[in-house]
Design a protein around this nucleic acid. Structure first.
Length: 425
RNA sequence: GUGGGUGUAGCUCAGCUGGUAGAGCAGCAGAUUGUGGUUCUGCGGGUCGCGGGUUCAAGCCCCGUCACUCACCCCA
């Protein structure tokens, strides 16, 4: 009886593994190129950690562990709580700015669908201790850089940016009480996902005055920062003006980082999370067929929530599932592996030991070497060697061996030459 | 949690009006005991997702169930 893999998980056979390593290498390279340092935490955390950040309802979506001790545990569904915990525990001594990245395996208990599985790999980049748009621009730029290293361009993906603090200032200027903002965000998050009439109905259900409702609908039609500015110009509001200026500064920094072609303002990007406090962003495929490839933003209050000291922070998470779908659609794949340097073939079983000792000498010398584990049909063994993509085959044995020589065959040119064994390594 | 689609070999699939399973690819071996990518031959591998029903007879029809998958809900 064969046992299938658990629901909504993937098996990584060598072909898929090569693909995953390719993606992870791009993430690592993009992070390190920008001076971010690697970190990691445990694969499971206390349930308390996740409850603290996200509330009790989160428990439904966690893989809870039946703990043998008194601690309730859960497999990590994201890295940010671990990040906040670890930073809080050493907050005073960590040099600023804190620029950290991590790539890890996450699990969420949910029904699978396209782009969503129960196990996935996620790249997190976070920058703490720096306030202002330059920090937001930095992490967004790294996210885009990671995608560029996989062959994606501004024709493939768009970086959609909004600002929670701008939204908040705008809503306040419309006379909407702060405790109602979350509900407005909740509806705004549906923008682009539901039809316009449906959206208007949802806004209406919040229970705002007709006048306010009209203004919100007007605001939500904004296609650019300029649109927001002209909307705001009807009533002068210092806070709104300040937020617009900050957002424009962010776009300006992104242009300096050569990410301009990716960027677009999108008032519908709010992110589900309550903890975002400033700029928020998501990266989408331009065709709009897939879920967000990446999402993040500024979360200046999280460190306090997690028991640390107040510290400005921003970052993003990028999963491998949607990204993988996108790469598939664009026919982007890892470059082929660098081939073996040598493939050794024993000419008769009595040469097996010699093949092994030569192999080991080559390997110690830094060469990539494989060999035929048994002597046999030479034609077949050459075929095997050929399939590995090896550059040269070494025939060990026969009449040459008695003269202290081996024959080296270049697999491309098919030329052969004899070399003395002592000169080999 | 709700709804749709699909289940036949490792993979992709064929299988007629029901007559007790096939192809291609992949794997392994041989043709070929000292010369590779082609070719030819052979071999292994399936309780046709599972259970029940109808029938002389079910991969095919009916019922149930499970799994996978897509979408909704949710989404850190």
């Amino acid at each position: 009886m064969k046992i299938p893999a658990p629901k909504y998980t993937r098996d990584f056979y060598p072909e898929e593994m090569r693909r995953r390593e390719w993606i992870e290498a791009a993430w690592v390279d993009a992070s390190r190129a920008a001076g971010f340092l690697p970190w990691d935490g445990p694969i499971f955390e206390t349930l308390e950690l996740y409850k603290r950040k996200s509330g009790n309802e989160i428990v439904e979506q966690l893989f809870n562990l039946a703990s043998k001790g008194s601690q309730e545990l859960a497999v990590r569904p994201e890295m940010t709580p671990s990040l906040a915990r670890m930073i809080a525990n050493r907050q005073a001594s960590l040099p600023r700015p804190i620029k950290w990245y991590t790539i890890g395996r996450m699990c969420r208990y949910e029904r699978g669908q396209r782009g969503r599985l129960r196990e996935f790999w996620q790249w997190n980049v976070d920058l703490l201790g720096v306030d202002g748009p330059i920090a937001d621009a930095e992490v967004m730029s790294v996210a885009v850089d990671g995608l560029e290293r996989l062959g994606l361009t501004a024709d493939d993906v768009a970086l959609r940016i909004n600002s929670r603090s701008l939204l908040s200032a705008l809503l306040t200027s419309l006379g909407i009480a702060p405790d109602q903002h979350a509900r407005v965000y909740g509806v705004t998050d549906k923008k682009g996902k539901v039809a316009q009439p449906e959206l208007e109905k949802l806004y209406a259900q919040i229970g705002l005055s007709q006048e306010t409702l009209t203004q919100i609908l007007d605001l939500m039609n904004s296609q650019s920062i300029d649109d927001v500015r002209s909307f705001a110009s009807r009533r002068s509001d210092e806070q709104v003006a300040k937020e617009i200026a900050k957002l424009e500064e962010l776009f300006s920094h992104l242009a300096s980082l050569e990410k301009g072609p990716y960027c677009q303002f999108d008032i519908g990007i709010v992110r589900g999370l309550a903890y975002y406090t400033g700029p928020v962003f998501e990266i989408f495929d331009r065709k709009g067929e897939l879920r967000a490839v990446c999402g993040g933003g500024r979360y200046d209050q999280l460190m306090e929530t997690m028991g640390g000291q107040a510290m400005p922070a921003c970052g993003f998470g990028m999963g491998d599932v949607v990204l993988g779908e996108l790469l598939n659609e664009r026919k982007l794949a890892p470059p082929s592996d660098s081939p073996l340097d040598y493939y050794l073939i024993p000419m008769g079983d009595e040469r097996l030991a010699d093949v092994l000792s030569l192999t080991q000498r080559f390997r110690k010398g830094g060469k990539k070497v494989d060999y035929s584990p048994k002597a046999g049909n030479l034609s077949k063994m050459l075929k095997k060697a050929s399939e590995t993509g090896v550059k040269s085959v070494i025939l060990v044995g026969g009449e040459e061996w008695t003269r202290g020589q081996v024959k080296i065959r270049d697999m491309q040119s098919r030329e052969e030459r004899e070399v003395s064994i002592t000169d080999l390594v």
